[in-house]
Write a protein that binds this DNA or RNA. Structure first.
Lengths: 230, 230
DNA sequence: AATTAGATCTCGACT
DNA sequence: AGTCGAGGTCTAATT
């Protein structure tokens, strides 16, 4: 990894065009060739970047009739697909290279999948009469999170989100449109989430999809109590 | 901005929990207090991060009964909301601070808004008989990009995307379901984009929504020719 | 290669 | 502060 602090201007041309006027910024060149341009404010995401695979050519900037070297350097970074990032460096304040470890993977815990696992084992939390038929029940446009049967022997499709937005309602609607013919009859839809955007509730109501809000800590608490008992 | 190359492990606890085992990584502390953890592979996005506003406390790690200093240091970064990132640093290979310019803004060009502006002035490109009623015509679920009248005095709602996907069809469908009662009658829908995913075309066809593909350069060319004439 | 759905999404605009 | 829509979304999983 190479770290450069430099006064530079940056131009990107690809899916859109952007221009950054000259200023002192951080340039990161990673081992895989990708380049990031960061400022001191803002956060998280680079002002400009080029992802690997890409190639960088660094060349001097000549000026005038005699082609005298200006001391400036231009970095031309391109990828397949013809996107280009051009960094014109007029002053280098820091330039160092470092050997970093190839990262051991990031271990994640606690996302939607976990919620699905918890609810698949306790779908009565969603509605007391529900009994799980199958988790990740397949349809021809992808698997619905939970397929259950209710007290009357009817089917209930459950879509689980950390945060329910309008897209979640659309998604469940598409599943229902496939499940209803496939299961030969009525299939209810329930959207379960830790919290709901108002628009999601409105659209769900329009389509007779129930919304059930669950609490993550409570859900884990129930789970812990369950484990403690057995 | 502070740049540190260090052997470290990282734990994040907040919206989810993550753990990174010890390895040599890049730590960036920005002027606003935000902290980024980068590796040499992957790209664009940090392995872990904490966005501003947040506060960092750096303290030595004591060990044993006598509390002898291990030479290790732990960075505790917290924000409002109780999210925490804990970086345990066992070896520092580089540590430097730099003064960067507060960035002059990034200038963007070529996004959907530009496309909308171009098409609002030349909606006959979409279909020759169209005449603009209003750009960003409001409905109770948000504004539709263009509302036009056609040759027969009927209404046409136009949704514009850089890339038309299934969501764009859903979005236009929702607008139409609001516009039809509001405008008292038939309202056609047209989806305009630089390119179309096949599934978007299929769903649009099912719903009698026309798909019109436009070329960005051509659109700007038409515009230039127009300006050159007058 | 293409498609789908998630993300500690982030980011900006608007209310 | 909350909501909503867009993103050079990116990213991983699956077909």
């Amino acid at each position: 990894m190479r770290l450069v602090i430099a006064r530079c201007s940056v131009d990107y041309a690809g899916r859109l065009s952007t221009h950054l006027p000259p200023a002192v910024r951080l340039l990161i060149v990673k081992a895989d060739g990708s380049v990031l341009v960061h400022t001191d404010d803002g956060g998280y995401k680079p002002l400009n970047w080029m992802s690997a695979p890409c190639t960088m050519v660094e060349e001097p900037v000549a000026e005038g009739a005699d082609g005298e070297d200006t001391g400036w350097r231009v970095w031309r970074i391109t990828n397949r697909g013809g996107e280009t990032m051009t960094i014109t460096v007029s002053e280098v304040l820091h330039d160092s290279a470092h050997h970093l470890d190839p990262g051991p993977g990031l271990v994640k815990d606690g996302v939607e999948k976990q919620l699905q696992a918890l609810l698949s084992e306790r779908c009565h939390v969603v509605r007391p009469d529900l009994q799980l038929v199958r988790r990740e029940y397949p349809t021809d446009i992808g698997p619905v999170d939970l397929l259950c049967r209710d007290g009357d022997g009817g089917y209930v499709a459950v879509e689980i989100k950390r945060r329910a937005e309008i897209d979640g309602v659309e998604q469940l609607t598409r599943y229902l449109s496939r499940l209803r013919p496939a299961l030969g009859g009525n299939v209810e839809g329930i959207l379960v989430a830790l919290d709901f955007k108002p628009q999601a509730r409105v659209l769900a109501a329009e389509r007779s999809i129930a919304c059930v809000q669950v609490d993550y800590d409570e859900l884990r608490g129930v789970e812990s109590a369950f484990l403690r008992l057995f």
